[in-house]
């Protein structure tokens, strides 16, 4: 079982980052964003596009050949692009819907349509086959009894640093404080003179950058696929619900728990030969949590009814 802990940490960091992004967006905009996974995939695919060598035929349409630029630069560029993407979604789609008084449920259905649309755009433009970044292959080593490659360790550290930075941003910067204010009560925020349109835009950009970064990390740890975001989305929901919808710290925590749980469950006795069912355990846990403590571990009760 312990040999799965490394995998658990890796999946955990992906889900935790994704959950923070989802939870932040939900907290501020009240949008349950089913297209979240597609923003995650966008980051990963863009990085693939920027960093792969120009002669590799990973993209479907031959008129787009990869750019072959430095990997770190690709990561930064893709993350920024995801932010732009999220900002455009808000400006062109979600803000007009809000101004026309679309209810949460109508918007939720729109995000489902958006998710299906984007995902299959990726399918048309990028290969359906799982593809890896051009990074050298590494062997797993022993770190305090946990099996990881050196790059895995780097990814974990970077992931932690990003989460700490998000925490600092939310707690100490003016924009971050304003985001939390809108999240906790948009009426109150309006009274205190916070421009909620601006804050919502910033939230979309910020959350999408974070989501895109999540996708890149997922791409480094596993590989890049057109439907990678959709596959991880349910686990991200589970992480968010477990930690408590609308709390950033809870989402991080919940994400890690879900990731570790999913991977550790592979080692359970009754799971022998049922590897596919490992995700089912996490999702079942989410449903149980909703049954016994719908506000999640760190959430407050008034968010749920």
């Amino acid at each position: 079982m312990i040999e799965q802990l490394g995998n658990g940490l890796l999946l955990g960091v992906i889900i935790a980052l994704g959950s923070v992004a989802l939870s932040l967006l939900y907290g501020v905009t009240r949008i349950v964003n089913f297209a979240h996974g597609e923003i995650i995939a966008f980051g990963a695919i863009m990085t693939l596009f920027f960093s792969s060598s120009p002669d590799s035929s990973l993209l479907y349409l031959d008129r787009f050949s990869p750019l072959g630029i430095n990997f770190i630069a690709s990561v930064l560029l893709s993350t920024v692009l995801c932010g732009v993407f999220g900002g455009l979604l808000e400006l062109l789609l979600f803000r007009p819907l809000r101004k026309n008084n679309f209810g949460n449920i109508a918007v939720l259905v729109v995000t489902i349509g958006l998710s299906i649309f984007l995902r299959h755009i990726y399918l048309l433009f990028a290969s359906a086959k799982p593809t890896s970044y051009i990074l050298e292959l590494q062997r797993r080593q022993d770190y305090f009894g946990i099996q990881l490659t050196p790059r895995n360790v780097q990814v974990l550290i970077v992931g932690f640093i990003v989460m700490v930075l998000v925490g600092i941003f939310l707690t100490f910067t003016k924009t971050g404080k304003a985001m939390r204010a809108v999240r906790d009560s948009s009426e109150l925020a309006n009274v205190s003179g916070i421009n909620s349109d601006y804050i919502i835009l910033v939230t979309w950009v910020f959350s999408s950058m974070l989501a895109g970064f999540t996708g890149i990390i997922q791409g480094v740890i596993n590989n890049v696929r057109w439907n990678m975001g959709f596959l991880i989305l349910l686990l991200i929901f589970a992480g968010t619900v477990l930690g408590g919808i609308g709390t950033s710290f809870g989402a991080m925590f919940g994400g890690f728990i879900i990731g570790i749980l999913v991977q550790l469950s592979v080692g359970l006795q009754f799971m022998d030969g049922h590897t596919e069912a490992k995700n089912a355990i996490a999702l079942a846990l989410m449903i149980v949590i909703l049954l016994v403590r719908p506000q999640g571990i760190f959430g407050s009760k008034d968010r749920i009814s």
């Binding site: 489902i112 349509g113 998710s115 299906i116 649309f117 995902r119 299959h120």
Partner: peptide, 8 residues
Amino acid sequence: FVIVGLLI
């Protein structure tokens, strides 16, 4: 599916 998504 692109069309299904757009349709929705």
